[in-house]
Design a protein around this nucleic acid. Structure first.
Lengths: 150, 150
DNA sequence: TTACAACATTTGTATGTACAAATATAAGAT
DNA sequence: ATCTTATATTTGTACATACAAATGTTGTAA
């Protein structure tokens, strides 16, 4: 379905706007699907991303600014986001000995086990979406999107 | 800059996740830029989209569900969003005579004039972003993204 | 050592959004 | 006419997010 059909506009859009709208609408579509799947796990998308970032640290704890710069969507309150994950027992927070301004955050065993449950569900959605186009097309999009971000 | 560099991960990502992340990160980048520009006009992105939808109606008023289905990102409280725009004098709301369940919403003269001020700023951002790739690439992305949404 | 700037996180407040329940109207069935 | 179901919007409540100010910490210069 074309972007015009999707947002039900009959107006002729300039090339640049068509592209931008298409990216935004597609991103929303993806977020909707992933967000819906995560709901079964009582997890928001930002929470899920924090957990994946922490797992990617492979044991090495991360501080708040590290998490923030790796987030897919930058957000302004990582403190409270991490609080939620601590309440659920998925992460823990220790004040850094060397630099007491910093806080070391790491994923717990429970968090890792939980992620292992969630992963296949999300992987499945991501694969299903991506499988609609072939590898060459994927590579082309990736290259172009990298350019667009400048 | 590759998606891996952008989100600063050293882990090898599967092709599908690279694509998905790339779309999401690029969409965030675009939203950040547009959102920042709109801040000068005291307008949020959803508010801006509602105004553009109403202008697209070319005088014909729209009801809430019409607005909702045309929104780039579906949202669950169009009533209050419209309230904000009414407070600013950009739109007006009239209860439909024929079907009193429906509400007819239309953009005011002030709203149209305001949009004319905002438009060139947003157009400029959209063109600047899109100009980083050529028309063929844009068309390829558009086609592929349409496929991805299924 | 004190003072000051830079840094890292946290908190307060306002605003935005999601979801479900409530309201109101319309259309059709009995 | 009354009851039920479907439709369209609004409201209540909880939660999320943005932004700025506040807190606490470190390093450095007078």
């Amino acid at each position: 379905m074309s972007i015009e059909e999707t947002i039900k506009t009959t107006n002729k859009l300039p090339e640049s706007r068509r592209l931008i709208l298409n990216i935004l609408v597609t991103a929303n579509h993806i977020n909707d699907r992933i967000g819906e799947a995560l709901k079964d796990f009582d997890l928001s998308i930002p929470q899920f991303n924090v957990l994946r970032i922490l797992r990617g640290q492979k044991g090495k704890p991360a501080n708040l600014s590290t998490i923030q710069e790796r987030m897919v969507s930058r957000m302004s309150n990582t403190t409270r986001l991490v609080d939620k994950l601590i309440l659920k027992g998925y992460v823990e927070r220790v004040i850094c000995e060397k630099n007491r301004r910093k806080v070391e955050i790491s994923i717990t065993k429970k968090g890792l086990e939980f992620l292992q449950e969630v992963d296949p569900v999300i992987d499945h959605i991501e694969s299903e979406i991506a499988s609609r186009i072939n590898s060459e097309e994927i590579e082309l999009i990736n290259d172009s999107l990298n350019e667009l971000r400048g």
